[in-house]
Nucleic acid binder design. Structure first.
Length: 416
RNA sequence: GGAGAGGUGUCCGAGUGGCCUAAGGAGCACGAUUGGAAAUCGUGUGUGCCGUUAAAAAGCGGCACCAAGGGUUCAAAUCCCUUCCUCUCCGCCA
């Protein structure tokens, strides 16, 4: 939602905020906007007078005539401009502060309750009681929560030996499929990004408490590679035939998990640092919803290759992220903890991020349009690791390694 | 971290206070010429905001934009300050 949208459809804007359960005053924004436009008109008019006077002075000077009277007038007008500009700056600051908190529009297909739209695979059956990943991981010495706590405190994990290798195998497997089969361009971006980048993707200002901020330098640690990938083309223009652009990146992700005390405290369902492969697309506006379905298929393919049962949820308006117009979540079944785990979130942000990051496309008719930007995880690993360990566990305590990962593990078939 | 050189439109590139409304070139678009093309000639060529229009687009009018922000001045691409980025050299470092 932007200012123009609110100006033209104030009632629709209010309805969207209501569905998203966001609390922003549309009327206040409209009032500030009206005031702003009045001041701009006034400023431009005074500026025009001042400019004309300045030109007259230049001519008089050139003809070596006396200009002292006009000088006095020009000075006064100049001061008046400055006064008006200060007033305007104040209004614009207030307005910008409000606009920062405006979420994206909602796509018409988004429901009011989360809806499961697809399922794949069978939940594994066991003739023993399946263990949770923390027990399996410690027993096989592939996960080490105690040592991680020594290094960083609670909510961290340390992968060890074949565990570290399995994590690395997952990263490489996903990157290989995306780059070789689906033609995403692989990026290895900085994990520290400037504040502006977070604002552009919509992570700021709402998620400020969720992120780690550097004390001495103006950086935040990225909570997802969506931040650097979206900002790859900040302030750039595409030619129409350059689109769509597909990018993928593996990065560690850092999250404070400030509001989740007491939730998922055991194991590594919710930790402060985790590995993720991210997908981002830049598309023409008319293609973005087809591209969303393609991205979803790309992610589902990974789940199917790993033979992990999953369900696809279409998120409701109130569950979607601030920047998203439509989101699918992919949830993997984890047999040990006995729940569905969100392992991917795939969103079409339409032009929300493109507006903030100023990314446009030059159309064939020479007009400029904001591109649409999509992102999705493909995949978030600690939780995939959990699903593999818990679903592939055997009675003897070993884990079968999914076939597609074996080439990445030196042909190893099981961890015991 | 220290010293120096830079950052101008889609691109190259000129421009040290006022006819800068940014020279010149390339590119691109349209037109002329041609049987068709090349070459040549002509014309045009950015973005944002505000207004005008019932609305949208176009058009028209106004304002702004020469890395970003601030300052000096009646007047700033041009002078001063701060910041960012690029390049070269030195220092430090994996």
């Amino acid at each position: 939602m932007n200012l123009k949208f609110i100006r033209e459809h104030p009632d629709l804007a209010k309805k969207i905020l209501d569905r998203r359960k966001e609390n922003v005053s549309i009327d206040e924004i409209l009032m500030l906007d009206t005031k702003r436009r009045q001041i701009i008109q006034m400023r431009d008019q005074v500026r025009m007078q001042h400019k004309q006077l300045t030109e007259k002075i230049a001519i008089l000077k050139r003809e070596s005539k006396d200009e002292s009277e006009l000088l006095q007038q020009a000075k006064q007008l100049g001061q008046r401009v400055k006064e008006i500009e200060n007033e305007l700056a104040q209004i614009e600051r207030q307005l910008a502060e409000k606009l920062k908190f405006l979420p994206n529009v909602i796509h018409e297909s988004v429901p009011d309750n989360d809806t499961v739209v697809a399922c794949w695979g069978e939940k594994p059956q066991f003739d023993f009681t399946p263990l949770a990943h923390w027990d399996i991981g410690e027993a096989l010495q592939i996960l080490d929560f105690k040592t991680a706590a020594k290094l960083a405190g609670s909510r961290f994990v340390m992968f060890k030996g074949l565990g570290a290798q399995l994590e690395r195998a997952l990263i490489n497997f996903c990157l290989d499929i995306h780059t070789k089969k689906h033609h995403y361009v692989e990026i290895s971006p900085p994990s520290l990004n400037l504040e502006e980048c977070f604002y552009n993707t919509g992570a700021l200002p709402k998620q400020a408490d969720e992120m780690y901020k550097c004390a001495q330098d103006p950086f935040y640690l990225i909570p997802t590679a969506e931040v650097p990938l979206v900002n790859l083309h900040q302030n750039e223009q595409f030619y129409e035939d350059e689109l769509p652009k597909y990018y993928t990146a593996y990065t560690p992700c850092f999250r404070r998990e400030a509001g989740s005390y007491g939730k998922d405290v055991r194991g590594m369902i919710r930790i402060h640092q985790f590995d993720k492969v991210e997908l981002v697309k830049f598309t023409k506006p008319e293609d973005s919803y087809d591209e969303l379905e393609k991205m979803r298929a790309d992610v589902e393919e990974l789940m199917q290759l790993l033979k992990l049962p999953y369900q696809v949820k279409l998120l409701s308006a109130s569950e979607m992220a601030f920047q998203s117009a439509k989101t699918y979540d992919i949830e993997a079944w984890a047999a040990g903890v006995g729940t569905w785990l969100e392992v991917s979130s795939i969103s079409n942000c339409e032009d929300f991020q493109a507006r903030r990051a100023n990314i446009r496309v030059r159309r064939k008719d020479n007009s400029l349009q904001y591109v649409h930007i999509l992102n999705g995880s493909g995949l978030a690993f600690p939780r995939i690791f959990i699903a593999i360990v818990e679903n592939y566990q055997q009675k003897d305590g070993s884990i079968i390694i999914p076939e597609v990962l074996r080439p990445y593990m030196g042909g190893l078939e099981k961890i015991s």
